[in-house]
Simulated scan of single mutants.
Amino acid sequence: MEETINNDNPMTDIVALKKAEFIEKSAKVKEERAAIDKKIDASNHKISWHTRRIKSLEDKRYSLNYPSWTKEYLRPILDELAMQTPDITWDFERLLVFGLRSECPVFGRNSEQVLTGITFTFHENQLYYDTGENKRDFSSDTLADLNGFNNVSAPVECLNTLLVHVRKRLEKEKEHLNTNP
């Protein structure tokens, strides 16, 4: 007697059963993958949008024109100083900043060709001028000393302070010239 296998009942046939389970699992995975791909695409779209937005903001930040302390803060003060000292010919056409202290020296000469000057620095939105005094925080001939870090600076509070300073510098320079022929 020959045995026959009943292929009509899928519940009893392991091949058909596993095939059906595999197809169902594959369909679920494809469905999940499609949903995940959709979320990835949406996230990539957001990333792309944010990347363009960041680039646009960086370009905007780069194009900002930060105010120059020498042009917008110091220059008008110097213009007024020049008007208040008509006896001095000032040379501040180009305001150059240099050195470790980012100093900006300004010079002028009176009718006798006596030189005067002021050295300005700028820190935390405050304009300073070197008073002509020295401190000894740094040893002589050190990088700090050579770059003016031993100079005493004072905040520029009013134009009168600068006028007094300029006159004192002129007098000291005249005295120096008269004692050293």
Rank of each mutant, 00 (worst) to 15 (best):
D59I: 07
D141R: 15
E80N: 05
D145T: 06
L95N: 04
P86I: 09
L17Y: 10
S48E: 13
Q84T: 02
P67R: 07
R53K: 04
N151H: 11
L17H: 09
T116C: 15
E133K: 15
V106R: 00
L74V: 02
L146H: 11
E171K: 00
L57A: 04
L57H: 10
A82P: 13
K39F: 10
H50M: 15
C158V: 04
H50Y: 14
E171S: 01
A42M: 14
D91I: 04
N9F: 02
L57P: 03
F138Q: 07
A27P: 08
S26F: 14
E175A: 08
Y128K: 01
K174W: 04
P10I: 06
A42Q: 15
Y129Q: 00
E3T: 06
L177I: 05
E124P: 05
L127A: 07
A34Y: 13
L170R: 11
D137N: 07
T70S: 03
R169A: 08
T12A: 12
P181Q: 12
S111Q: 14
N7V: 11
A35W: 02
K135Q: 10
H50E: 15
S153E: 09
S43Y: 11
E103D: 03
E171P: 03
F149Y: 06
S139G: 15
S153L: 01
R167V: 04
K46V: 10
Y129P: 03
T116G: 05
A144I: 05
R94K: 05
N180V: 05
G108T: 06
N150W: 03
I5P: 05
L78Y: 04
E2Q: 10
V164T: 14
I36V: 15
E21C: 12
S26E: 14
Y128E: 00
C104E: 07
N9H: 02
D13K: 14
V166W: 11
E175T: 06
N134V: 13
K25G: 07
Y66N: 10
E133N: 12
T121D: 09
V152G: 06
I118M: 01
N7L: 08
K18N: 09
K46R: 13
N150V: 05
K60Y: 03
K55L: 15
A154S: 04
V106H: 00
L81D: 00
N7C: 08
H50P: 07
K55D: 15
R167P: 10
E72G: 02
S56W: 08
D41Q: 08
T70L: 02
G132P: 09
R101T: 01
D91V: 02
E2V: 10
E93R: 10
G148W: 01
H165A: 13
N134Y: 13
L100G: 01
I5L: 08
F138E: 07
S139D: 13
Q113H: 08
A42I: 12
V97D: 00
S68E: 00
V156Q: 01
